[in-house]
Nucleic acid binder design. Sequence first.
DNA 1: TATTGACTTGAAGTAAACTCTAAGTGATAT
DNA 2: ATATCACTTAGAGTTTACTTCAAGTCAATA
Lengths: 122, 122
Amino acid sequence: MQISEVAKEFGLTTDTLRYYEREGLIGPIAKGKNGTRNYTEEDIKRIQFVKCMRAAGLEISFLKRYIKLFEEGDKTVKERRKILVEQRKILKEKLDAMQEAYNRLNYKIDLYDKNILDKKLM
Amino acid sequence: MQISEVAKEFGLTTDTLRYYEREGLIGPIAKGKNGTRNYTEEDIKRIQFVKCMRAAGLEISFLKRYIKLFEEGDKTVKERRKILVEQRKILKEKLDAMQEAYNRLNYKIDLYDKNILDKKLM
DNA sequence: TATTGACTTGAAGTAAACTCTAAGTGATAT
DNA sequence: ATATCACTTAGAGTTTACTTCAAGTCAATA
């Protein structure tokens, strides 16, 4: 699979894919004899993971660190678990904050729908 | 209430509060005779709203637009409702993506806890 | 009275995550 | 054969949201 196809499938740009590779989040991707990238199924799975975590707001620096540990093998299992738990906590807090904002938006839209125009901003 | 107290209450810096004011998200805050800001209860409520929405990832530019419309009065009600619905949609998509990442993290941590060390990254 | 601490300003600086540019290569369509 | 198109690189530029800086004011305390 070549870069533009992968980009299309994931809704990323080719620039972003090359950027992730530069940063060590994916790859290095094997290249054909003309120098173009050929993404394997393994590469695709990695991109899936990275995309999911990025969409959740996890930082590139964290993903870099986690992937590096993973590549260092079994001896890093304990540390990997630890940072996953860390990230889960951060993510949970964000989720809760977002849920609160979501509820607030719902409430306000509901007021608009009922034509209750109070003079409060929110 | 003066700026440092407000900052402390909301876990923001005084710089951020002045920045929000510059951008028109809050205030203009009334100043005492020595030129320092005095935040009213109204100001505090506005900051609460802004903080909640920012924590959910809504952009400054959106908040600016919404607040401007609000200040233009009842004639902007329709447009306000429209952009709230827009933002709610964006927020919902983010929430879902984050929930997915959260579940994935949970699943992986669970594997670590059970000492099932598969060789997959995620 | 001198110094400390919190405040003020406008403007410049920073971090994260892309995004774009310029210059070039190689395979395919006219 | 020539033009078009997708790809390559290194490196510069952009956006968003702050954050820091430099220089100054004012009130209170040692």
